[in-house]
Design a protein around this nucleic acid. Sequence first.
DNA 1: TCCAACGATGCATAGCTATGCACGGCCCAA
DNA 2: TTGGGCCGTGCATAGCTATGCATCGTTGGA
Lengths: 361, 361
Amino acid sequence: MTAEKKAATLGAADASPDQDWPGGTFKKYASSVDVARVAGVSQSQVSRTFSGSSKVSESTRKKVLEAAERLDYRPSLIPRIMLTHKSNLVAIVVGGLYNPFYSTVLEEFMIRFQAAGHQVLLLHIPNDHALDDVIPKLASYRVDAIVSALAILSPAGAATLAKLKIPVIAFNTAVNNEWVTSVSSENFEAGRQIADLFIARGARSFGFISGPSTSPASARRREGYEERLRERGAGPPTVARGDYRYEGGFAAALSMFSGPSRPDALFCANDLLAIGAIDALRERLVLRVPDDVLVAGFDDIPAASWASVGLTTFTPDAAAMVDETISIVLSAANGKPLATKPVVVSAKLIERGTTNRDLRS
Amino acid sequence: MTAEKKAATLGAADASPDQDWPGGTFKKYASSVDVARVAGVSQSQVSRTFSGSSKVSESTRKKVLEAAERLDYRPSLIPRIMLTHKSNLVAIVVGGLYNPFYSTVLEEFMIRFQAAGHQVLLLHIPNDHALDDVIPKLASYRVDAIVSALAILSPAGAATLAKLKIPVIAFNTAVNNEWVTSVSSENFEAGRQIADLFIARGARSFGFISGPSTSPASARRREGYEERLRERGAGPPTVARGDYRYEGGFAAALSMFSGPSRPDALFCANDLLAIGAIDALRERLVLRVPDDVLVAGFDDIPAASWASVGLTTFTPDAAAMVDETISIVLSAANGKPLATKPVVVSAKLIERGTTNRDLRS
DNA sequence: TCCAACGATGCATAGCTATGCACGGCCCAA
DNA sequence: TTGGGCCGTGCATAGCTATGCATCGTTGGA
């Protein structure tokens, strides 16, 4: 028993690491040094055993693994982060999870990042003004990249993030600069497609329920919708503002249909708005969908395919968006700025019951 | 310019930290040493400036902050973790986010943990057999606590987690041992309450759609339901197995109502199952809810209060559950085992349209 | 005027792992 | 027998911050 150097040698007297230091510091985990002492080898060999290096003999490996087992040793990643300047941590910033679309995307992200050997640090931001509060934390944990799944990321917010000099991938937002790139679904084209579908179904007057005024995705969907309506010679849509939530769609539809112009086709900036609007039409205004009003949304959340809803909508190919994001993150190594153009993935129209009627017949 | 010790002195020649070392190592962030060099003070004073210690003069503080600004310096938390054995990281393990209840809870957690100065490491586990894969990661990142928001955590899984000697709080699961404690909603009592409600509404024959067979929450809800039915002299409920998803409720209701016994009151282990069942009844079997069948669920997800659904259900007081969990985590310091009994928070019955009919009239 | 007290500063070190380098032993070929 | 690889091992150090301790200069009180 050679316990001369340190007064307290962990594992020499007792195999349990739960003990107080003479100095008063509390030692929670066994270290590679402790394992080395118990196994009777050098710390180097412990490290090499766990890093899978070949430079360790079978007998040593066995001794090390036995000692590690006894001490419940698991190598810490923390020093490695210090040495390599890579934490393998990716931060995902989310605004709200009330929209199932974002839950789905978040789940997909987790699975993919974990498979790629990264861990996910999750941060919540009530509004993008609060971004400044979390910036220091992001930097302090030395995250390798930041994925912003905020519905809205203002240019100012993007600039704040860029100051960190950490690669940022913004989801569904058009901003991009040296450090921020974006991955979005095809919004403009979807707006055009739905206009064509409504017209093909015989609609004459049109409505649009938007997301928050600052949401670029909502704006693009509306622009495509309006452009195509104009091209086809239809009048401009009546517009009401929602907030991407069920209640917003409900209220917006109520006010829109109590006004002078009652559209017979209604495009909503996302599915939650659309479902809220449908409920307002059916349950409060006693209008039939699709017989009186055609309705379409965007996102293809699970509820859109419920039998009682059957909402026509767009599937944004979330898997492809996540794929693109991951590959950008993985290629953005060594702290160099991103050299990526904004990525746009297609959104596929899924027609269901809420547009399944020819209004002319 | 005294740059004798190190060949490459960051900030002495150039204020930008983006440069390659002669040694080849890439330096991504400025360190406190770099700041100290630029500010012309010792590293200690830089550290003290940022830790808010009072032992630093106004002039020094100013010089330090200026230099830090120029170098984009943000103190790293990594060395602190090494010194204190506390990472301020809390891992949240989730199984699936398809159930909006878990999204809501997760969001609540994030907000509360961030407010308490912790960061959230999010992990996804397809099934609790895969727990073993993430255990090493959890240990390697030295998380302070683990919150399991898995719908199901088997005793074996709990034992695996306990081996880590990290406090584990299991959500909605009854297991608990020296390292694992649980926070659940009142399930048994809810089952009893809904039996009383059904009987008060004049129901005669009863049904239950369960979650996965291994879910303790589902089992408890059923037990309370069956016990109270027995006490009130009603026959045992017809039971079908679902999987906590909409599709499972839909299929279970179809099969149950194509069988010999058609219940006129149906309790489902969660809201998604209930909504699936309602859609099957209304859209496929052309039965009316609540006129022909009363239906109730559990969780009070947002869709439960949609006008088109109006589902009678139980609100599990997620806020209280999160509160309890957080306080357990915060009190579980210094690697000591938990000394907490399982916590049970109440669930409040919310009656809506799907039970709003007296079947006798 | 002298000493105590205090405020500010710098030095040195802990904390843990990965890895370059040197060294010792061994085997094999010449 | 000898020398050149080669395998395995240990030593020493980088990486960054917090903090106990010693030092130094200053101020205030006796």
